[in-house]
Every structure is written in C-alpha cells, then in structure tokens.
C-alpha cells in the first residue's frame, strides 16, 4: 500500500509531539512515554498516579476528534496487516516495551532528548529490528 510523502504535516506533528513532551516535563516533571502512561494506568501505584495519566490519555484520545473538527477529516488509520498480525504484534510490543522500559515516545523522543545512553541504545535497537522485521515480512515471507 503506497502512502503519500507528507514532510510538512509530519514535521508539524513532530514539533507538537516535542512541545507536549516539553510541557509535561515543565508542568508535572514527567516523561511523555506511552509505555509508562499505559503501564501506570493498568497498575497505578496510587490514585494520583492514575489521575494525571487518565487526564493525559483523555487529551490524547481527543486529538483525532479535534483534527476532525478543524479539518473536516478524521486522520487516516490504514491497517495493511491481518487481524492476527495486529494482535500478535500488539502482544509482542507489550512484552518488549515492558522489558525494554519504553517505546518510541519514551526512549525515542524523551530519552534521546536527555541524551540518555540507555535510550539511545534502545532506540537504535528497535529501529533496526523494526526495519528487519518489515523487510522479512514483506520481501522474504511476502505477507
């Protein structure tokens, strides 16, 4: 499935992601990491630990709706993989981010921005493994 190259929209989106990460650190002193947010919602250490994450998630989920209201179009979600791949992939993601201590947002943006050696190693590792997985699935296995 071909997708359009969207450098301007992607750069703007990226800057907003970075702005949100900066503001979360400036206000609550927290890392904007989807893994930590999700984990903290599933198994919160305290009521307050749950509340700020719930408020943050509510804002995140409102994002596509606000884009719909502003542009008249819901952001595209095109899923070029089968349902079993979505579910198995999701479980593997859940396992990996728990042991790896973060994902694209936590390690890839916030950790890299702190120049954390752990996050740099994690990000390089998952970028390589994602690319290899996509290559193997699309060009060797042929799904």
């Amino acid at each position: 499935m071909e997708t359009d190259f969207t450098p301007f929209a992607s750069l703007t989106g990226g800057i907003l992601i970075g702005l949100a990460a900066t503001l979360l650190m400036a206000s609550l002193g927290r890392i904007m990491g989807a893994t930590g947010i999700l984990t903290g919602l599933i198994r919160p250490a305290s009521a307050d630990e749950f509340k700020w994450r719930a408020a943050l998630l509510a804002g995140m989920v409102s994002g596509p709706v606000v884009v719909l209201l502003l542009t008249g179009q819901m952001p595209a979600v095109e899923v070029p993989v089968s349902v079993p791949m979505l579910v198995v992939g999701g479980m593997i993601v859940g396992l990996g981010v728990t042991f790896g201590g973060g994902c694209t947002s936590g390690h890839g943006v916030c950790g890299m921005a702190r120049l954390s050696p752990r996050s740099i190693v994690a990000t390089v590792t998952f970028m390589i493994f994602t690319a290899v997985t996509v290559f193997v699935l699309r060009h060797v296995v042929g799904v």
Partner: peptide
C-alpha cells in the same frame, strides 16, 4: 526488550 518491541512494531 527493545529488539522484541521492534519485531512487534514491524508486525
């Protein structure tokens, strides 16, 4: 963990 995450993301 990061390698496993990458595999899941790629799937």
């Amino acid at each position: 963990g990061s390698a496993v995450f990458g595999i899941g993301w790629g799937i």
